[in-house]
Design a binder for these strands. Structure first.
Lengths: 111, 111
DNA sequence: ACAATTGTCAAGTGAATACTTAAGTAACGA
DNA sequence: TCGTTACTTAAGTATTCACTTGACAATTGT
């Protein structure tokens, strides 16, 4: 089992590939097996498995094998991590803009 | 000038590289020139310029040349796009979990 | 027992990627 | 005007990456 702690570097690297994003997209609808994941994907099963390894290493996806079928599900903490990284940078930028705006609007606040 | 419309594919590809994320990180503190961006980065100026091209193509960064210095700034719409993509998938997953929870909590809602 | 399903593993290939070096251009500053 | 600064561009290189093929293992249905 061994749940991987999500890591910013790996998460963004994983999301950088369009096929892996398609996998995440599909998984957001619910858990699904490897072969059903592969069906719409125009690549071999082996390639899909490789993508899943990357996704699991990154902590974006968790999988569990029961019998001969491996079921894959999203690990939302991985997505949150990336979302937060982006949000942090964006809001830092926007707060900066606000401060600039304030300075321009009221150049003298000495009272 | 020609502001590039941000595009999900390019944005995620751009954010997939750690050096480019470091650049975005730095830019979130405010606009800065190419050479000052490069200073802490342990790679050549030429490499930084190449990363900036990718970032600009993706719509994450905007640059403007005045005299001999090119000033770079974040384009927050690019970050928002990625943030939204992630948020959409995460919330779809979470809504699904909620529905499942409801079903388990109240198996008979026929009234 | 046997065949089909579902996935795993290893090796190889071609393309993309990040990086360097080197040579050049344009603007600024004394 | 002449040197320095701040990029820019092109070409080459080494590595990483996505993908395929093919051989294999385990599980399940008949």
């Amino acid at each position: 089992m061994h749940k991987k702690k999500p890591n910013v570097d790996r998460v963004f690297h994983a999301l950088g590939d369009p096929t892996r994003r398609a996998i995440v997209e599909k998984l957001s609808e619910g858990p699904i097996s490897v072969s059903r994941l592969a069906e719409p994907l125009d690549i071999t099963l082996a390639a899909v498995v490789q993508h899943l390894q990357v996704l699991e290493e990154s902590g974006l996806v968790q999988t569990e094998k029961t019998g001969r079928v491996r079921t894959c599900r999203i690990e939302p903490a991985g997505l949150s991590l990336a979302e937060q990284w982006i949000g942090d940078r964006r809001s830092r930028w926007e707060r900066r803009l606000d401060r600039l705006g304030d300075l321009l609007a009221e150049p003298d606040e000495s009272k």
